[in-house]
Amino acid sequence: MRLTTKGRYAVTAILDLALHGRGSPISLADISARQDISLSYLEQLFARLRRKGLVTSVRGPGGGYLLARAPKDISVASVIDAVNESIDATRCQGTGDCQQGTTCLTHHLWSDLSDVIHDFLDRITLEELMHRHDVQRIASRQQDSASQIAVLPIAHTS
């Protein structure tokens, strides 16, 4: 199966937004710091998420991003789909030309698996992930780490 970092990072970043946003815009710099995802990469992902109506942007001081829908209305599959990522277990990226231009013996098996995985991820919402104890524990640890980094004194050289 092929799910690249684009899909994984998009899900991670929008889950971070759902956990920390709570009605206030969250900057991509904050998400970048907590999740160790490059800011420029997040900008690309959030542009796609915004175009698909999953997030909205708020400009100006204190700006950032908000979820455009309730967490219960955003599935993991919709996030992956929004960044043009495919969940594809086939060797041919679903085209059916896997064996010298024709369909291979197991193409339909892997295609069916791709559909099952997509359906599975479509049934999982951000809200469900937000309520998982492991997710809450990790988010708390990341927030604490980000807070400690923000208050570290700057060393002055003489």
Rank of each mutant, 00 (worst) to 15 (best):
S75G: 07
Q35G: 00
Y41T: 07
S57R: 15
L39D: 04
D119T: 10
R91T: 05
D30E: 14
Y65G: 00
Q44S: 15
S24R: 15
R22Y: 03
D122N: 15
G63F: 03
S40G: 07
I37P: 00
L28R: 08
V116T: 09
Y9V: 06
D16H: 11
H131E: 13
A47Y: 14
L126Q: 00
G21D: 01
L105N: 07
D119N: 14
L54Y: 00
R69V: 04
A70W: 06
G62D: 13
N84G: 09
K6C: 01
S147G: 05
W110T: 12
K52Q: 14
G64V: 10
S78N: 06
F120D: 13
T125N: 11
L49G: 03
A13E: 03
L49F: 03
I80E: 02
V151C: 00
T106Y: 04
E85L: 01
R141N: 07
G62V: 10
L39N: 04
Q142F: 05
S57A: 14
S114L: 01
L66K: 13
K6W: 07
S114R: 02
G63I: 08
W110A: 12
I80T: 06
L49C: 02
D134C: 04
C98P: 05
E43D: 10
L152S: 05
V11W: 01
H108S: 14
T157S: 10
F120S: 08
T4R: 11
R8F: 00
I14L: 11
F120W: 09
V116I: 13
S145F: 10
